[in-house]
Nucleic acid binder design. Structure first.
Lengths: 230, 230, 230, 230
DNA sequence: AATGAATGAGAGTTCATTCAT
DNA sequence: TATGAATGAACTCTCATTCAT
């Protein structure tokens, strides 16, 4: 139901004891960390198992291949980021508020787990399937919310197009202000530079104003009106 | 200032004859094609030189390393896509029209050279510097235009934030409708599936409506305007 | 025409210079020697390249895989043993004499290149195709000769069945008296014990008497008659 | 004298309970089956224990090593094939009839347990000792019978040489007509192709005629005799 | 008695780069 | 200028065997 397939290819790699489950978990966490630092290609099984503190062979007790952990890592992160977003968004009183809170959740998650962002980009070549699933799932969440909002007359845009636009805005601004932060102009923004920044409020405000008006939101009012509370 | 370093590291790798220049060019073109198909990691020097029809050793006559061709390829593509965009945009009579034409140029380029898109994503780990340069340069173009528009009172948004938002929208929608096209729902969107689609007009229309309103563009309150102010 | 396929799988591995040809040859000889000593499984690329005095990577310049060198080694040996056999047999004045000389050639070859025998046996699992080709080619030689002999009225047996019987006799007696020799009763007949023996004349005589009569050869005469010269 | 060493190397691996004996038996049967399908090298302990339905650790409760099960498997099969042969041969009224029945038993056994044939070939490198024991034991049986026949004046050949010749004929013809059968000409005769054929009567007839005459058997000048002495 | 967990040495193979011609 | 030859470090993955429960 959850996993990407852990029983494929003959051998059953499901842990059968509590100890095994713990070990598997350790490896998965180590993988996420290593992938985030080095990317898929540079990450090596040796490095992952070292970080997990287990022998090389142990890896293959619970995972089919490097690719499979990668996909599982992506799925795992995807699940978590969506959880973070929807939990945050649930507190919003209307679509726009929900959207803003959702983005806040997204940026906070990005700040804490830059892994997500980095990993996904390499998936383009490593596992197109994982890449597509990742974006599609997040977008589906947007589409749901936007469709309801449109049916309620809150906005007047095509939910699908708008959803992908939102996805793009979030990703690009997340990259620029959360991942790069102040180092945006220097050349030292590298995979190893793990420090992230918080999304500045002014940027978030401006971005939300853009989105709100873009969606044709009720209360989006005149050009200069930045708040919906009169 | 211009070149990505072709003179560094002792050896001078500049072609001295016309024949040399031609060979260098052949290799660069081959590299673009191979990177586009396989990504940076999977691409190999052997493959590139084969595709270029030269011997392996010849490669190092003109390039320092695999990384260097990669960066040069990115720069080259970046130059070309910006050219395509600005040429198209120049025909617009106002900011919004220019923006639409610019996007059309961008999507057309993407359709023809999916390389750009694919390559850039892997740069996240391969050469963060190249990645940042790429986005920043395109964004700079947006910022220029948007600043002028704002000063002219055409729009009322912060040019920088808006520029990155536009970049994100373009990239995400390009991925969804140009790169994936109809195959968006199936699992077979892979590096090898080289076919791209044209951006559908309805999507472009909807996207532009989103952007136009997002930017707070004067004239956004056109005939079919759905704003809530009576 | 000759080789098993050296151009398959994309990469062309044919040497292009004299130096390359020499290197390839060195590796092939080393492979034969290592396979003969250790068998396919225990033989390793490292061992082969060490014995050949080249780097590990060099191996893959000329061979696709361990399996491919193995098959090529088998083919090479097969060609050589058949050559040895037919050259020897050509001097015989009749079928029986030819057969005896052919066997002598076979046993001499086995004594000098125990590799052939050893290698072939493991092919059962490693490359059934190579195994079958090996036996079939030798048997084809027998069948040719026996068919002519039968048509000439020299013998009266079915050539195919007889050919396989001859193959079996030669192989088994070669193993017993050439490979094992005097060490037949001790336990130390191992892959590493490279020493072979000459086939004892008495055994060869007795074996030929068996074959000659088995084939229903003219002049095979009465039970005790061991020579065809009256 | 009997066992292949189950008590060596410190640890006693003899089953102490009926349950243990059953488990050991299960593993041995599984081993035979796996070895027959995959050969010694490809066979793995995991595979064997899976097929036996026991845990990996259990294996080492009853066997010292992979090599030891292999040797035991060979011995077991050897015992069984000799039993099959001698039982069949016992019904013969004279040496030639006994020989024919013995071969029939051998071919039938081969058809049912191709394992024997396959396994033995790899033993060349895996356990030369086991290989030699296997052949020697069968040959000893032949030698016994042939010696008696010679002393009784039934045949006039050297029992030892003839015995090895018979062994070779049986093995080669078994391979050709029982193991390969009709697939002899195609390339698909592989370890995985488990189907065997029955030895065709014509081939068996011809083979026996060859042997009978080869042995210089009295009564070889039977009705359909083709000897050249009028 | 029985088992899953764990290991590490070693296997085959790839590839960016340097060298000799 | 151009090229094929050569390399060795590094990678992913397998597996017989031992250990803890």
């Amino acid at each position: 139901m959850t996993g990407t397939a852990n029983e494929t290819k003959g051998v059953d790699r499901t842990p059968r004891t509590a100890r095994g489950t713990r070990t598997r978990e350790k490896i998965l966490r180590a993988a996420e960390s290593v992938f985030a630092q080095l990317g898929y290609t540079e990450a090596s099984i040796v490095r992952i198992t070292e970080e997990a503190g287990v022998g090389q062979g142990t890896f293959y007790l619970y995972f089919e291949s490097k690719l499979q952990v990668f996909e599982e890592t992506v799925e795992d992160l995807n699940r978590r980021v969506r959880h973070a977003m929807s939990t945050a968004a649930a507190k919003g009183r209307n679509r726009i508020e929900a959207e803003r809170l959702g983005f806040e959740g997204f940026f906070a998650f990005t700040a804490e787990h830059p892994a997500l962002y980095r990993i996904i980009r390499e998936a383009e070549f490593v596992s197109p399937r994982a890449l597509k699933l990742h974006y599609s799932r997040i977008v589906d969440g947007y589409v749901d919310g936007l469709t309801k909002a449109r049916d309620a007359g809150e906005i007047d845009t095509d939910p699908t197009v708008a959803a992908w636009a939102l996805m793009g805005i979030g990703e690009m601004l997340g990259m620029r202000w959360v991942l790069w932060g102040d180092r945006a102009d220097s050349g030292d923004v590298g995979p190893l530079a793990g420090e992230t920044s918080q999304m500045p409020t002014e940027v978030l405000d401006e971005m939300m104003r853009f989105i709100q008006r873009g969606l044709g939101s009720r209360g989006a009012a005149a050009p200069d009106d930045r708040e919906d509370q009169p």
